[in-house]
Write a protein that binds this DNA or RNA. Sequence first.
DNA 1: GAGGCTAACTTGACGCGTCAAGTGATGGGG
DNA 2: CCCCATCACTTGACGCGTCAAGTTAGCCTC
Lengths: 160, 160
Amino acid sequence: MSINEEARWLNAEESETWLSVWSMMVWLPVRLDAQLREDAGLSHPEYHALSQISMAPERTIRLSELAAASNMTLSHLSRVITRLEKAGWVQRAPDPVDGRYTLGILTDAGWEKIRSAAPGHVEAVRRYVFDALTEDQRRALGDAAARIVEVLDPPGFVRA
Amino acid sequence: MSINEEARWLNAEESETWLSVWSMMVWLPVRLDAQLREDAGLSHPEYHALSQISMAPERTIRLSELAAASNMTLSHLSRVITRLEKAGWVQRAPDPVDGRYTLGILTDAGWEKIRSAAPGHVEAVRRYVFDALTEDQRRALGDAAARIVEVLDPPGFVRA
DNA sequence: GAGGCTAACTTGACGCGTCAAGTGATGGGG
DNA sequence: CCCCATCACTTGACGCGTCAAGTTAGCCTC
């Protein structure tokens, strides 16, 4: 990220690669978030939570499972769900099986919300990522990213 | 990001690529931030600000220039500088040339701070990114990221 | 040279994301 | 059968990052 470092540690080609990768990591989420925000009035975590619940059986999921599936802390998820609840898209209910769990239940309004928001979001991913690349580039990007993720070793990551 | 989308819009290979890219974008910043936080007690923006000031003439820079060079809003930078000031690494002073500008001036303590923090950070970038890739992969990643950034069209981006 | 425009900066409020501390429900051991 | 450990969740506080609104300094025009 700095000339200081680059001069000491990264050669010119590495620096250029790093600048591109860094810029992508900064701006891709910004653009995707902006699309969701403008077209659906949702933040990405809100979208993701609605999407995940919509795919669960009975459109119902335990918050702790949702957090794990979303790479989100329970802490953060709790606040997201609170907003979704205020908007009328999700309801909370204690799990009748084990009262310690809280269920997130998608309302009909929530179902409509995610149904209407999804196409635009996928279209944005396609526009910003896949339309920009050739098939060879797409594969190379996937391979390099997969390799880096392997080294990063995120919790819960399952190797293909 | 969701099966819902994938089934409708992305084929299996695209989904896999997207998952890898997304995971990389989520976890690479987390790991780099953690390294800085643990080894130097700095957030990434704090590190970046110190780094940029250290490279400026007289180790002094106008806050608005620093913000532009850092892809950061003045708003956010202002708070970052406030923390760096409290830590004794940076001082604020009005620009004698034009009193509307505020200068950020690196203190000796700030200079020592960034000097000691830089090697570890570069090492982390090398470990997580470049050590994981072959030269071909590095080039392919750089090309794909550059292409995507071109489409994202971030403000102030200069094409090579 | 006084009034008002503009540019630089700060501050408030909000969402993302974290950790730490607190609350409530459950289940297991004495 | 009761107490306490544990688990799920919530809340507070903090930093990242945003936009909007307010403040101050400089400049430009009349």
